[in-house]
């Protein structure tokens, strides 16, 4: 060891230069793609809203903080002047690998209509089995050509929340008959989504007045 001369400053500077180039490149790409990414996310949100809400012609958003101080973004959908439904969107930090963005369409009383996950980085095949809505195809459909499916593709785990309304506690992971809201091998993802849907519904139920005040305020404008 002693015989070998290690030029620490030189190595340090080289590594520093490489890191600086990498940082510069990353910030350049990050800044130059920011706008385009935002547009894409907005498109995704719009598509998601159309899926979880009944037909509407305009939508406004308001952010309300939940009991746990998570910001929940509510979309108030109107047809004409009448509110036809709410949609809540929350980013839960409880996912298995990073944030999960959950959107839930709500009835006027705050109960859940339908749930979709708009962004996640869960493990493909395990966590995504809970988060993704995919049309089940069989080989028979392939030969018959199959009719185009409209509306939301089924997902047993997400559909569990349909018509549920948040009470005082989070929903546990349960299996009642054919219905189940948790997947073996993806417990953390299942719990995170349950928590997010609960947060959306609970916040809506707690702030129904607030949501309708917004309606009154808008109507007077």
């Amino acid at each position: 060891m002693g015989a070998q001369k290690i030029n620490i400053p030189k190595l340090g500077i080289f590594l520093g230069v490489i890191a600086a180039i990498a940082a510069g490149l990353l910030s350049f790409v990050s800044i130059s793609t920011e706008a385009a990414i935002k547009v894409n996310l907005q498109k995704k949100t719009d598509a998601a809203l159309e899926q979880v809400l009944p037909t509407f012609d305009k939508v406004e958003s308001v952010t309300i903080r939940s009991e746990l101080d998570w910001p929940v973004k509510f979309y108030i959908a109107r047809k004409g002047d009448e509110i036809v439904g709410y949609a809540g969107e929350v980013i839960t930090p409880e996912g298995f690998s990073g944030d999960i963005t959950v959107m839930a369409g709500l009835e006027l009383d705050g109960s859940v209509r339908s749930v979709i996950v708009t962004a996640n980085t869960e493990t493909p095949g395990l966590g995504t089995a809970v988060t993704d809505r995919k049309v089940q195809k069989t080989i028979v459909d392939l030969f018959k050509g199959g009719e185009a499916v409209t509306g939301l593709a089924p997902n047993v785990y997400l559909d569990w929340y349909g018509s549920k309304k948040a009470g005082s506690d989070r929903w546990p992971i349960v299996k009642d008959g054919e219905q189940i809201n948790g997947k073996t091998g993806a417990t953390i993802t299942s719990v995170a989504i349950g928590g997010a849907v609960y947060t959306i519904s609970k916040t809506a139920v707690d702030h129904l007045d607030g949501l309708s005040t917004l309606r009154q305020k808008d109507l007077t404008e």
Partner: peptide
Amino acid sequence: KIRIPVYIVVIATFVTVVDLLMQAY
């Protein structure tokens, strides 16, 4: 002597750039 840290920086940067570019375009 420092090739492995350099490779890791290069790979991580490349992956992130690809991720952002794909997300955008």
